[in-house]
Design a protein around this nucleic acid. Structure first.
Lengths: 145, 145
DNA sequence: CTTCGTTGTAACAGAAGCTGTTACAGCGAA
DNA sequence: TTCGCTGTAACAGCTTCTGTTACAACGAAG
């Protein structure tokens, strides 16, 4: 499948907000964020909406409106972003119920569910190890500031 | 996205072949496998084609044709199946290149790539811990034989 | 060497999801 | 009251997945 890029967009947006804040720009509009991601402002607002519902960013309305981080970038992990933007499990079970008259068809789903749960736990544990501040630091090292 | 079910189909097919073999049916046709998965035989042949290219199953043509495992179910891991049926990475980067004039846009992709590589490694390590024989055993425990 | 059941693959339709885009109502600070 | 920005609906284009039909190719059996 063409893997979706929502996690990438979400992390990019937060890293950019974190850098702007460090530079004294506490609030960014979706237009300004979209310029860095190079996509449409509505796409960014959709992503920021997910992040806002998860409590990772706050929004200001009215004149001088825009977005900022809800807490320090050290305290937002990539796992937080993953949970904010992703609702589907990593692996899907059968689209249609397998044949329940077959012993394999009858028992395979719970058996596979255990394996998939383990894989999800592994991914989450790994994503939790990295914060937005970590990503921003590595990003700036690569881009040479 | 609606997660795809190819890994599930692949594991189901192999578990069914393993059980059939244990019961003395060394070779199954795609029709017989499809009856357990409850889907179209062509869908099963597509999955079996992936598994054959990966060396997990062997096919016989002509009269009495059909499929069987290429090696013992204890020596096929869920990771083998994952690699046989899945080509895309777990997480996608930006669809369009971000703004390279922005420090974040310039460095975010390699930084995120490191995080995603770690997550892929974690998933693979977890999938490698379970064999088709393990899945079959748990499946039969659940289905009560 | 013919027969016949099965494989391997192309082609297509329908459904679903993602990205990108336009449009516009709603909000709130100034 | 104004004005800039948000929030969201609606739509198009693209891609992928599943399911389906169709048919050429293969090879064991007789």
């Amino acid at each position: 499948m063409a893997a979706n890029s929502r996690l990438t967009i979400g992390v990019h947006v937060l890293a950019w907000l974190a850098l702007a804040e460090r530079r004294g720009r506490a609030v960014l509009t979706s237009d300004e964020v979209a310029a860095s991601v190079k996509t449409n402002p509505v796409v960014v607002r959709r992503s920021l909406g997910d992040l806002r519902r998860a409590g990772l960013v706050v929004v200001r309305h009215g004149a001088g409106a825009g977005w900022s981080l809800a807490r320090a970038p050290e305290e937002i992990t990539v796992l937080d972003v993953y949970e904010a933007v992703e609702s589907e499990p990593l692996f899907g079970l059968h689209h249609t119920e397998p044949n329940l008259e077959c012993p394999v068809g009858r028992g395979i789903r719970p058996a596979l569910g255990g394996v998939y749960d383990g894989a999800e736990r592994a991914v989450r544990g790994e994503l939790e190890r990295t914060s937005i501040a970590d990503v921003l630091r590595e990003t700036l090292e690569v881009s040479g500031r």
